[in-house]
Simulated assay, not measured.
Amino acid sequence: MTDPIGPIRAALAGRYEIEREIGEGAFATVFLARDLRHERLVAIKVLNADPTSQESELRFLSEIRLLAKLQHPNIVPLIDSGHAGATLYYVMPYVTGESLRERIHREKQLPLEAAIAIAREAADALAYAHEQGIIHRDIKPENILLSAGHPMIADFGVARAIDLAHVRQLTRKGFVTPGTPAYMSPEQLIGDRPIDQRSDIYSLGCVL
């Protein structure tokens, strides 16, 4: 049987050892892997759809390099990126714990103090990134990971990188762009004007 992720395994051989798939979204499949150089677990996100051109691929990798400079205790850092053939991927540390979505599903409703504490730290991370000129564009409970009770925002700015690469995921309803409608600001959902940091603040308010 053909290994569906054979090209990725081959491209990462000697650097990362893929253990298993741990998640899948509209735009990426997530794999748990071992960083052989640093002896640590990482999460590798592989885009499900190919970029439309080599220029698009270069835009994606260039944007990822900018995002890798973000250093904040409540932001999951990007530590590597690349491509295997025309398939793009990026690497983050593997965060043990659960997502905010999983906690909400488990507890149904968070205690007020816990919800405020999570929102405060997430807002601090957003403020830091906004000072660097970077907008998340896809704030939602699934992208807020909880480690030792503290939030860590994942996929910071990756939505823009995917958009720059002109990557589109084809669904039954047609092509979709990065973002989650239930948490999007009106201007992001309509797409009739450029968005700024206020869109992230709106999304965090929806989460809270």
Rank of each mutant, 00 (worst) to 15 (best):
L100E: 11
A125S: 03
G133H: 13
R101P: 00
E113N: 02
A117S: 15
A123M: 09
T96Q: 04
E131T: 05
A115R: 08
Y128I: 10
L100F: 09
S99H: 06
S99V: 04
E102C: 04
E121A: 08
A129L: 11
I116W: 01
T96N: 06
E131W: 00
Q109T: 15
L110V: 04
G133V: 13
A114S: 08
H105T: 07
R101C: 00
D124G: 04
A115V: 01
I104E: 01
R101M: 10
R120V: 05
E107V: 14
E98Q: 13
D124Y: 02
D124E: 13
R101G: 00
I118L: 15
L100T: 09
H130L: 10
E107A: 12
E113T: 01
A117I: 03
T96L: 11
L126V: 01
K108W: 11
D124Q: 12
R106Y: 14
E107M: 11
Q109M: 07
H105I: 08
L126Q: 10
L110D: 03
D124N: 03
R120Y: 06
R120I: 00
Q132I: 03
R103P: 05
E107R: 12
Q109L: 03
A115F: 02
H105R: 13
Q109F: 03
G133S: 13
L112E: 13
P111S: 13
E113M: 02
A123P: 03
H105Q: 12
Y128T: 07
K108L: 11
I118N: 07
A122H: 00
S99W: 02
Y128M: 06
Q132F: 04
E98M: 12
H130E: 09
I118C: 06
R120P: 00
L100A: 03
L100S: 14
G133N: 15
E121T: 01
A123Y: 05
E113G: 00
H105K: 12
L100Y: 06
T96D: 12
A115L: 07
A129G: 09
A114D: 14
L100H: 04
E107D: 13
I116E: 08
Y128P: 13
A115H: 01
G133Y: 15
S99I: 09
E131M: 03
L110T: 04
A114C: 05
E107L: 15
P111W: 13
R101K: 13
R101H: 09
R106V: 11
I118H: 09
L126E: 01
S99K: 03
A122Q: 01
I116N: 02
